[in-house]
């Protein structure tokens, strides 16, 4: 494994993976406990429109994707607070339209066709240093925000009405959270691709939630799981010469199913113990 790190692109890839896991662990936990997975999916896919826009205008990819995702995220946040009943439908519409706009914009851009696959499935092996720096700064800012508002976010996530009664600025916090999700998603697109963003944001927190007793523990465990998946995935993809983004997600998916198996074993064991104690009591 060590000898792999003599290549700069491998070191950058590893750094990107670790950074991504850290941010995904924290933000993914908030996404899962607030049931924002579908909304995050919508943001991730409408980011595609931003990528198309960036190419059409000749802007850097990050700028276009960031602008577009942030805008659509704010619209989705407004929709999901105003008309809760049909929020998922409207997010679904924006999801599809965002992608279509992206493809159309790339179609009408003169010149050569961009390799869209790298944006769908990520290009972790070609993350430049400059992007790493942006990721570190934006990630740091996001984590600071979450740290500062941690208790407010915790209370809002558990019980929005109670939070309101306690004077927590729920509405503003909600928009902030969705904005943070948008920034996170754009950064992740670079690493694992937009198709696979959701998996990295949801699988580690989902597994972690079951085995932890507090949001902090959940965040820490999801960060560690994410790091294990990205590092392991990178190594396997290097050894077997496979697409790294897909391998990372495949590894995370395996972890997900393993945890399900572990769960049912724990449940079975609990039931066995209960039956045993009942038998002892009656016997």
């Amino acid at each position: 494994m060590i000898e792999v790190l003599q290549f700069e692109f491998m070191r950058n890839a590893l750094m990107a993976g670790l950074l991504a896991s850290l941010i995904c662990g924290v933000i993914g936990s908030l996404i899962v406990i607030n049931r924002l997975v579908f909304l995050s999916g919508g943001i991730a896919h409408s980011a595609y429109g931003g990528i198309g826009l960036a190419f059409f205008l000749g802007l850097p990819f990050m700028a276009g994707a960031f602008f577009f995702s942030f805008l659509s995220a704010m619209i989705m946040a407004a929709v999901s607070t105003r008309s809760k009943q049909r929020a998922d439908t409207i997010i679904g519409v924006m999801w599809a339209v965002g992608m279509a706009v992206g493809i159309l914009l790339i179609d009408i851009t003169p010149g050569y066709n961009v390799d869209l696959m790298s944006y769908l499935f990520g290009s972790i092996l070609s993350v430049p240093r400059s992007d790493l720096l942006i990721m570190a700064i934006a990630g740091g800012a996001i984590l600071l925000l979450v740290f500062y508002f941690f208790n407010d976010l915790l209370i809002m996530s558990y019980d929005e009405e109670f939070a309101l009664v306690r004077g927590v600025p729920v509405r503003r916090l909600y928009y902030m959270l969705i904005g943070i999700v948008a920034i996170t998603v754009v950064m992740m697109v670079q690493v694992v691709g937009l198709i696979l963003v959701i998996a990295l944001l949801t699988i580690p927190p989902y597994i972690a939630e079951k085995y932890t007793k507090s949001l902090v523990q959940m965040m820490v465990l999801s960060c560690m799981l994410g790091m294990a998946f990205t590092t392991g995935g990178l190594w396997i993809s290097y050894r077997l010469d496979l697409t790294s983004g897909a391998v990372i997600i495949f590894l995370a998916g395996s972890g997900f199913f393993l945890s399900l198996v572990l769960d049912s074993l724990i449940t079975l064991n609990k039931r066995r113990l209960t039956i045993k104690s009942h038998q002892e009591m009656s016997g």
Partner: peptide, 27 residues
């Protein structure tokens, strides 16, 4: 304020004491 039983967020990662201490939060 004690709202109607909230069952929609059952697997929320918090202990009973954590939830009680939410009442102590002053923004």
């Amino acid at each position: 304020y004690v709202p109607q039983q909230i069952d929609h967020n059952l697997s929320f990662p918090a202990t009973a004491l954590d939830v009680v201490m939410m009442g102590k939060h002053v923004p």
